[in-house]
Design a protein around this nucleic acid. Structure first.
Lengths: 326, 326
DNA sequence: GTGCTTGACGAAATCGATTTCTTGCACTTT
DNA sequence: AAAGTGCAAGAAATCGATTTCGTCAAGCAC
């Protein structure tokens, strides 16, 4: 790896001049040429580490998600990466497994690695953004929000809940339950509030126990569905507030021998169907990739020095109509 | 962010001593205590960038995959990340989209970022590992191999092909076709050779056109399947050599109105079934996560200075029996 | 007691770029 | 013609750690 000194020596100029050539400062035509030729000849690439030490910042952004194996976050990551790439930034991806300790560890790494900024989907409300905040590094919350004063990109969860529930009502279902995420998380609250709003407005039947809270995973969805099916007067349809729980719910229905066409299932998120899903399944497509792309754009703006007031961008989800090739 | 100098000043020692305390060198009990107390008090974290500049290496490993949205690579990435984490390494994830130019760009970044090593699933045989190689950074090829002399972890593709095909024969199918990946890629060659071996040994019927080459994507699988179904004497089963093509094939079957129970489909890889798949679908489970974990382990050994001869680890795939929750 | 080894630890060099000072030269301006 | 202005470009400081080198003192052998 050639250094700036070797280039300088070969070109017969000072290292400072070489640096200036590569950073757009005033250098005469002739020396520019000399330097570029020399750099070319030596295959010179500026040492990012040295530059980072001096500039106190890098072109790396850190993305913290609960679990990259969830297709929602995969798509989100892809969006972030694509956008970052366009601006010459790289993305470091970290799984927090929704574990605040892991999350904290990664945030510290991000700080001590001089990463340019952080995009995260907070594991809990108690994220400690202290370390990065004190460094003045920008942070964007994605999908979920935090009490800290940072930019955020989220989905209009209430609207998504409304869309999902409305679709079920329109399809003729009249006893619609809801499998929501863990109580106390804003994101999931909004989603089931959407459900509540519709079932109230449309005066469908709601029994005690129609609202189930579960963890965000497959097993949680399955358990919740089994509980619902065990009610004295069970529902005839259900709204599940994320993709994994919907899978669990569908599995429970299958195990109970219920024909999928007879039981309405609306999902906030997409299911990895290979083939067109049963007509009773409604998917509200969450714009995951877009979410990532938007978050990356906002972060890059901040990194670029943008100081406008805090923003929260809310993206609207839409009902997925066509079958979904993976 | 406190620096080593501030810690030194507070502790009343030289910066060198502070460094020694944190790097396990000989320092007297007493000064150790002084330094640790001071560091504690200031919330000192060593600046990774400065360290990296001096040591000419970092604790970051670079993972290059074609597309993180393919669940196979997602699982692989997860394996890499988990293993890296255990050793205090971070992972930078990059999508190459099977584009050699993108791949090269990332490899150069890896070099100029002083990343500790690279794990990659090469986009083509012409990967240029020159830049990293010249830096002496270790590289591990994963899933696919390269002509370069680097460690590799792969799947026993021939055995996987054999297992898949055998399962179909055992299930009673007698006209088994194969949808293979692009011609000329070692990985896919091995897979269809497994198919060939079995159909030959078991003397099943093989017609012209029973071997189809396709790109590795859903559309490729669908097109190939349509071609197969259009043959004068079409097959009654098919082996597809990756997950995405299998999805395309299943879609084509569905569109052709063929009952999935009547047509055997064996897949090298896993399909994102929500519910138990039709009994005629055979999945050969590729140990993606393990692949990643193993690759990371090998890379970390090399990073640690291991100089044993080049290794290629071959992992065996197995037939998936139980239904697969996502 | 002199000479030699050994270990703790400070001073200073080093990694490779960026950036601030400075210098020197060309060109105006009065 | 002297003084002022501007600009290209070199010298040197800087970022924050690690590491070499050298010093000093204690411990030990003869």
């Amino acid at each position: 790896m050639a250094t700036i000194y070797e280039v300088a020596a070969l070109a017969g100029v000072s290292p400072a001049t070489v640096s200036r050539v590569f950073n757009g400062n005033t250098v005469s035509e002739e020396k520019q040429r000399l330097v570029r030729d020399a750099a070319q000849q030596l295959g010179f690439t500026p040492n990012k580490t040295a530059r980072r030490l001096r500039k106190q910042s890098s072109e790396i952004i850190c993305l913290l998600v609960p679990d990259i194996e969830n297709p929602f976050f995969t798509a989100l990551a892809r969006g972030v990466e694509d956008r970052a790439q366009e601006s010459g930034f790289s993305v470091v991806l970290c799984n927090t497994d929704d574990d605040p300790a892991k999350e904290l560890r990664y945030l510290q790494i991000a700080a001590s690695e001089h990463m340019a900024g952080v995009i995260l989907s907070p594991a809990s409300d108690e994220v400690d953004l202290g370390a990065i905040a004190s460094l003045g590094r920008p942070v964007v919350a994605v999908d979920r929000t935090t009490p800290y004063p940072v930019d955020a990109v989220k989905i209009d969860n209430r609207a998504a809940g409304i869309a999902a529930t409305t679709a079920l009502v329109d399809a003729g279902f009249r006893r619609i339950a809801c499998i929501a995420g863990p109580a106390g998380i804003e994101e999931t609250e909004d989603r089931y509030l959407g459900w509540k709003q519709v079932v109230t407005a449309r005066k469908t039947l709601v029994r005690d126990g129609f609202l189930q809270h579960a963890n965000f995973r497959v097993d949680g969805g399955r358990a919740a569905m089994n509980t619902l099916l065990g009610l004295v007067q069970p529902p005839d349809a259900v709204v599940t507030t994320n993709n994994l729980m919907a899978i669990g719910a569908l599995q429970a229905l299958h195990e109970a021998g219920i024909d999928p066409e007879d039981f309405g299932v609306a999902v906030l998120g997409e299911l990895p169907y290979l083939l067109p899903p049963p007509s009773s399944v409604v998917q509200v497509r969450l714009p995951a990739r877009h979410l990532g792309r938007t978050a990356a754009s906002m972060l890059l703006e901040r990194i670029g020095g943008d100081t406008q007031p805090l923003r929260t961008v809310v993206l609207r989800a839409e009902i997925a109509r066509p079958p979904l090739p993976l």
